[in-house]
Structures are given as C-alpha cells and as structure tokens.
Nucleic acid binder design. Structure first.
Lengths: 137, 137
DNA sequence: CTTAATTACTACACAGATATAGTATTTTAT
DNA sequence: ATAAAATACTATATCTGTGTAGTAATTAAG
C-alpha cells in the first residue's frame, strides 16, 4: 500500500491534531511541525475543509479545527477524498475487465490481500491514531 | 497495493508468456494481445532482458523468450527491477524516520498488513501465474 | 480606520512516469 | 548482396502529482 504524498500529508495533519490538546491549529504551526510544504499544505487544508473533515477559521486568529468526531472519520474517507480510492480497488495487473468471473492469473491469490487492505482502511478511524504521543520526526 | 503501469505491463507479459505454449514472442504479438503501448513495451522488454528475466533474439526471426525458470522468478524481483520496491516498504504516513522504536501513530496497526504484502510479493513466483488459461481482456 | 495575521484563490513551475517518433542495428531468406 | 523482419537506441512529447509564487479576502486588535 503506497499512498500518495497528499494522502500522507493529510494523515500526518489529522494524526497531529487528534493527538494534541490544542483545538485550533494554524497552517504555520502545522508546517513547522509536520515537514509538509507550506503552500501545498494550505491547499490541502482548504480541500479538507470543503470535504468537511476540518473547519477553517479565517481572519487574524484563524486556523483549523477538526470538524468531525475522530471516530467517525476513517482512513478510507480521507484517502478517497484526496486521491480517490479506486486505484486501490483495481486489478493488480491493470486489466480493467478483470473480475471473479473473468480473473487475471493473480486474481485468486491477490484478492484476499486486497480485501484486508480495504478493511484496514475502512475500519481504522482517526481516533485510532490518538495515543497521546506528540511525535517528532 | 497499487503497482506502476510499468510493473503491470511487465506482469501481463510474463503471465502471458508462461501461459502460452509458444516459446518465442515478438513485440508485435505481445502488443496485439496485451493492450500495452508498442514502443513502451519494446523498451520494457529490452530492460527486462538486461535484467535477465527474458532473453531477446534479434534479427528476422527474433523475439523474446523467458530466460529464467518461472519458479525462480518472483513478483518482487520484477517489481523491484522496473519500479523499485522501496516505495512499498516505507512508513504509510511517509515519515522517513518511522520505525519500531519511533513509530508513527499507524505503525502498529499497519505493519502486519505490510508484512503480508511483501510476503505475497516475495512468495509468488511467475510459475504461480501458470494455469494454462489464455485470457482475453 | 488602519494594520496585522491569518486563510483562499489562481496561475504557473517542476519532476517523474508514461507514451511516441524516428533512426540504427541485427539477422534471416532469397 | 539485397531486402525483409525483427529488436535497440535516442530524443522528444505528454500527463499527472507535487510544489511554488503572488495576490485577494477575512477577521481581530489597537
């Protein structure tokens, strides 16, 4: 499972937010802490606020806050929003017509693994990331 | 697990070769059969022959043949050769210093899955793809 | 009101993966 | 020898994800 940079950044942000006791986070603070390019992070935050994962507060004392209860936001939601989940649901050989009834030669051995991946993404919520640890990387 | 197009193409070729009773395959034939761009496939075949997975035969009756016994060639070898395997071995959040002793907040839950993925790739040989079926997609 | 500190928007730049085009080389058949 | 059928090489084009730059809009403080 190889997420896009954008998904990685999104998860870093959410993981950081949920593990901090602060409520509001400025882009500046996130950039300093999380090793994510400034402008790119800002755009991502705007995107995520449009998706309803976070809420943005404009103006002088602005920033971002989590908008959903962390246990109702799952990895798969975040990934689907920022890069699309379809990629992780296709044939491993890229045959678009591969299916149970017309399987590629890897289908049978790969499907259980893919199922586990999707389960991991759909069952892991942002609250799972909450362990009270403030990490430095 | 989302392979690069190039890896997908490589696996399609090898799967097709191992499931056919032919010995020699021209690029023309592979392109017609496998829905892979002509010139791109040719370069990939040259690359794979340099890696020793296949042998290329030049000249008028040329083409490509499998160069290794199919049960000694594993998915991970192919993927590592054409796109590099490191990508599939990093932190899911992209922290380069993430490790067992300095884990990201997803580390513990993700590691078992990653292990399974790598096992799948290292244990699945090209001969696994051999089931005698000639597929059309 | 004016300034300062923040987010939002738009356009552009860069890099790597993917794809194409054209030419050269190799080998066989005649 | 020459032509034909194949692969090899090199350069360029395109596309997509990632990153940057500059300006506008919003809000609070003084």
């Amino acid at each position: 499972m190889r997420l896009s940079k954008t998904s990685e950044y999104a998860l870093r942000v959410l993981s950081y937010m949920v593990n901090s006791d602060q409520q509001v986070f400025t882009a500046k603070k996130l950039v300093e802490t999380l090793d994510v390019p400034d402008k790119y992070l800002r755009r991502l935050m705007t995107d995520m606020s449009k998706k309803g994962f976070i809420r943005s507060i404009q103006g002088r004392i602005g920033g971002y806050v989590l908008a959903k209860s962390a246990d109702t936001l799952f990895l798969i939601d975040v990934i689907d929003a920022v890069e699309g989940i379809e990629k992780y649901n296709g044939c491993i050989m890229g045959h678009d017509k591969c299916s149970d009834s017309n399987p590629c030669s890897l289908h049978k051995s790969y499907i259980p693994l893919r199922k586990q991946e999707l389960e991991f993404l759909s069952k892991t919520s942002i609250s799972t990331l909450k362990d009270g640890t403030i990490r430095k990387f």
